[in-house]
Computed example of a mutant assay.
Amino acid sequence: MNYQIEKNNSTFLTNMYDLLYENRKIQFRFTGAEEKNKPILFILHGHGHSGEPSKFESPSWNIVCPMDYFGVDNFGSWYLGEEGDLFWLEVMPLIISFVRKQSGNGRLHFWGSSMGGYASIVHGRLNNATAIYANIPQTFLLKSNYSKNGMKKFFSPIFGDIIDNKLNDLNLLFSERSRTKYFLCFNQLEGGNYFEEQGLRFITHLNKLKQKFYLEVRPITSHGKNHGVSEAINLFKKYKDE
């Protein structure tokens, strides 16, 4: 696999890196903890992000913020890819490997909201994360009500002609329990039947697998962030040994 990672010397953003992979440049921010072998947290942004990585830092956590500038209007490809080339599935492990070489063998965690929540579930599960925090995540893309309500133009170019890809419906992505803990937060009254379609069916799937999860449902209508990164870290710590 031909790739390289270089420090980005931009004076605008600190601790930025460029991963050059198959004629693509993927940027991420990495801020190391003060000591080796501290936990690692990937922060994955939402759709249509403003373009800057999270500024969150912690002396006790290695913080990694990959930027998804791909997809329609460069608004994001759900950290998957474009036209059936799901290059993020290969890129994310490369970033994880790079971070581990710098920081040691701390436990891996993912945090994300909406598009980032979907991606946290996918990449957290595929890379054997200890825990995932996913706020209002999509779990079902094409053919969902959410897709019909204006998101199809963003979902379709991801998969190209392979619309039956298991990554389109996370209920199909895995059929066995893993050690990963899921921390999920949804807003009950969000329009488009979002909670039932994107939340309840996935939660039911996890429950059938006896997968460990934490669930919070708020009686509000918004499609917005509930817990910030610090709050999610506190949840990770609180239920670490359960």
Results as ranks from 00 to 15, higher is better:
1 M>D: 08
6 E>R: 14
6 E>C: 07
7 K>F: 01
8 N>V: 00
8 N>K: 04
10 S>A: 01
12 F>Y: 04
13 L>T: 14
19 L>D: 06
19 L>M: 07
22 E>W: 01
23 N>H: 09
25 K>M: 07
26 I>H: 01
26 I>Q: 02
28 F>I: 05
31 T>E: 13
32 G>L: 10
34 E>P: 07
35 E>S: 14
38 K>S: 14
39 P>M: 09
42 F>E: 12
42 F>V: 05
43 I>L: 04
43 I>A: 03
43 I>V: 04
44 L>S: 07
49 H>C: 13
50 S>F: 04
55 K>P: 06
58 S>P: 08
58 S>R: 02
59 P>C: 06
60 S>C: 08
60 S>R: 05
61 W>S: 07
62 N>I: 12
62 N>H: 05
64 V>P: 10
65 C>Q: 11
68 D>H: 00
70 F>K: 04
74 N>I: 00
75 F>L: 08
75 F>V: 03
75 F>C: 07
77 S>M: 00
80 L>V: 01
83 E>P: 02
84 G>M: 06
85 D>V: 00
86 L>G: 02
87 F>H: 04
88 W>A: 02
89 L>D: 05
89 L>G: 02
91 V>P: 13
92 M>F: 10
92 M>V: 15
92 M>Q: 11
100 R>W: 11
103 S>Y: 04
104 G>F: 04
105 N>T: 15
108 L>Y: 15
110 F>R: 06
111 W>H: 15
111 W>V: 14
114 S>K: 03
116 G>N: 05
122 V>H: 15
123 H>Y: 08
126 L>F: 01
128 N>W: 04
129 A>T: 06
131 A>N: 09
134 A>D: 14
136 I>K: 14
136 I>L: 10
137 P>Y: 00
138 Q>G: 05
139 T>I: 01
140 F>S: 08
140 F>N: 10
143 K>W: 07
147 S>A: 08
147 S>N: 05
152 K>P: 11
154 F>D: 13
154 F>E: 14
154 F>N: 12
159 F>M: 09
160 G>E: 07
162 I>T: 13
162 I>K: 14
164 D>V: 02
165 N>G: 11
165 N>K: 06
166 K>F: 01
167 L>G: 11
167 L>S: 07
169 D>Q: 06
169 D>T: 06
170 L>E: 10
173 L>C: 07
173 L>A: 06
176 E>R: 05
180 T>V: 14
180 T>H: 07
182 Y>R: 10
185 C>N: 13
187 N>D: 09
190 E>K: 02
192 G>H: 03
193 N>Y: 12
194 Y>V: 02
195 F>P: 03
197 E>H: 10
199 G>M: 04
201 R>D: 10
205 H>K: 12
207 N>L: 02
211 Q>W: 04
211 Q>C: 10
213 F>D: 12
215 L>T: 09
216 E>S: 10
218 R>I: 14
221 T>I: 13
222 S>L: 12
225 K>C: 05
227 H>Y: 05
235 L>T: 00
235 L>K: 03
236 F>W: 04
238 K>M: 10
